[in-house]
């Protein structure tokens, strides 16, 4: 691990601890929901970096299609995988929060359904390459699917504005009557957003290094095959 990665990990760790303290102890309980509303900080805190990860897939996939440089395919894949993990966090913490507040774990409204579809698209994106044998076709098909998946993100975000949903309206960049007003609640939210963004960057760097090692391994295996004939 490089010094840069160690520093990044240390920073992420500190910010994550602060986010936990603010979310669970310093931010006041919600007047209506009580303590269960504290789920919100990590629920929302994880999906924004998740969206960021999917947008990186869009960027990386376009770069790949333009340059045909495989590094962009690798970088996009890593980002898609992390986005999928963050999206899984949202899809599991959401129902746990929904049960005590809505009375049900799940509602087939536009926000929840579109998030589930987004998760499925990226699940397919991450696993697709295992099913395509043609190595030249693999990154091209992945890039197209990655772009399609990432273009769904604005729809997922806007779904609570376009449709009547059980899910509340946006807190960030929402309407005048939405959002949170208590400063400590805001600090908890922004600390959580910062912590998950740092976690995304840290995991992405780790994942890309791993992809590069995988490529090196492939080259070494090729050379060994020629030499040892196995």
């Amino acid at each position: 691990m490089s010094l840069k990665d160690k520093l990044l990990f240390a920073l992420m760790f500190v910010v994550m601890q602060l986010a936990l303290v603010w979310a669970l102890a310093i931010a006041p309980p919600d007047k209506l929901q009580g303590d269960v509303q504290r789920i919100f900080y990590f629920h929302l805190g994880s999906i924004w970096p998740g969206f960021l990860a999917f947008f990186y897939v869009l960027y990386g996939s376009i770069r790949y299609l333009v340059s045909r440089d495989l590094i962009w395919d690798r970088k996009s894949l890593v980002s898609g995988e992390i986005g999928l993990v963050f999206c899984s966090i949202v899809l599991t913490t959401g129902p746990v929060w929904a049960k005590p507040t809505w009375g049900v774990y799940w509602a087939w409204d536009a926000r929840l359904t579109s998030t589930l579809v987004l998760w499925l698209v990226f699940f397919f994106y991450v696993n697709l390459r295992n099913y395509i044998d043609d190595e030249s076709k693999r990154p091209r098909v992945s890039a197209v699917l990655g772009i399609v998946g990432a273009l769904m993100v604005p729809f997922v975000y806007m779904s609570t504005r376009i449709f009547e949903t059980q899910h509340p309206k946006p807190v960030i960049m929402g309407d005048a009557d939405s959002g949170i007003r208590d400063p400590n609640m805001n600090i908890a939210l922004y600390l959580s957003l910062a912590a998950f963004t740092l976690l995304y960057i840290y995991l992405w760097r780790l994942g890309v290094q791993q992809m590069l090692t995988k490529d090196r391994l492939k080259k070494l295996r090729g050379r060994l095959l020629r030499l040892e004939g196995f």
Partner: peptide
């Protein structure tokens, strides 16, 4: 009283 269970469950899942 049930809220704590859901709060702990959500953070554990994360």
């Amino acid at each position: 009283s049930n809220h704590m269970f859901y709060l702990v469950a959500a953070y554990t899942l994360v």
